[in-house]
Design a protein around this nucleic acid. Structure first.
Lengths: 164, 164
DNA sequence: AAATACATTACTAAATCGCTCAGGTATTAA
DNA sequence: TTAATACCTGAGCGATTTAGTAATGTATTT
């Protein structure tokens, strides 16, 4: 399962958006207000992502309907649907080019050696079992479980953190 | 979880050795005969791995005690311990340089932004949950479950299969 | 119309991957 | 003893991918 910086950044972006969606929920009793729009430059600054690189990642997230964009002067981004319905697999798969490092799994292109390859059978099960927890864990899970860590300062941020 | 061709080859190698270990089991009633020694050139030929590249992978597998080598004219390799005690995680981790694509997980080196990083918490759980099935699945599981696919012709093999 | 946002394509330096090459050491059958 | 065959090690290299820049264009709002 190939997870590159695109996935790391995409995850940060979605967590940032989810955090700001939460902040705008429940303004009226029982009413979910529309998620507030977050400027891309704010996300880029807070999460330490080069703005132009963030654009490329946003393009993919948008193509997968994971985010919605609002153009114009007061534009920005918001979540494309509820955080509860967005899995980490959705996020990673939408931005990675080759999330399956084994050709015979995923693309569906037969390599022609299915019957003689000693490891053809196992790989499908291996990736299924690795993908399962990613499908199970949602963006809402992540924001809820690590809510304490979501205290993002409006300025500053975490530019130098190359990990998460 | 980075899985490159080193893992793919290593998996093939271990499956090949496991298959030939099985073949030498039970020669005497209730007695496990020592695993037969498999020549590296045979493995390379059967599994379609460049011999010199196989050497490098074998070096790592040996360092992790996943294989034993026997030097000399009739030398070769055999499993370092029972297939039942070798997990896929053991195999992949032994040959991959950067199996964790996120720096703050695995190496234990703090990046210094643990308290402000929005995704620091989730990554540890994500990788734990992806690693778990790899730890759970053993080489013996793979050989048992896909025993039908283990009919390896002594000559020929599966050189061209780039996937598994 | 100016400001600010998003959209898109092309390009590139650096790192990694997959593999080759060259040479070495150890062991044993004959 | 010696030839044969195995394993061991490090350097190097082209192709690919990654991560990020740059330049330019389009859309919307104040």
């Amino acid at each position: 399962m190939n997870i590159t910086s695109k996935s790391r950044y995409a995850f940060k972006i979605m967590m940032d958006l989810a955090h700001h969606s939460i902040a705008s929920v429940g303004l009226l009793d029982g009413v979910i207000a529309p998620s507030s729009i977050v400027r891309r430059s704010d996300i880029a600054h807070r999460q330490g992502i080069p703005t132009e690189y963030l654009d490329q990642i946003m393009m993919r997230l948008r193509a997968a309907n994971l985010v919605e964009s609002v153009r114009g002067r007061a534009g920005g981004y918001r979540l494309g649907r509820e955080a509860l319905t967005i899995s980490l697999w959705d996020i990673f798969a939408s931005v990675e080019d080759n999330i399956f490092p084994v050709e015979c799994v995923g693309h569906g292109e037969p390599c022609g050696f299915e019957n003689s390859c000693i490891t053809f059978g196992p790989w499908a099960e291996i990736f299924d079992s690795m993908r399962a927890p990613l499908i199970r864990m949602t963006l809402a899970d992540a924001t809820d479980k690590w809510a304490d860590e979501l205290r993002m300062s409006p300025i500053g941020g975490i530019r130098e953190c190359r990990g998460g």
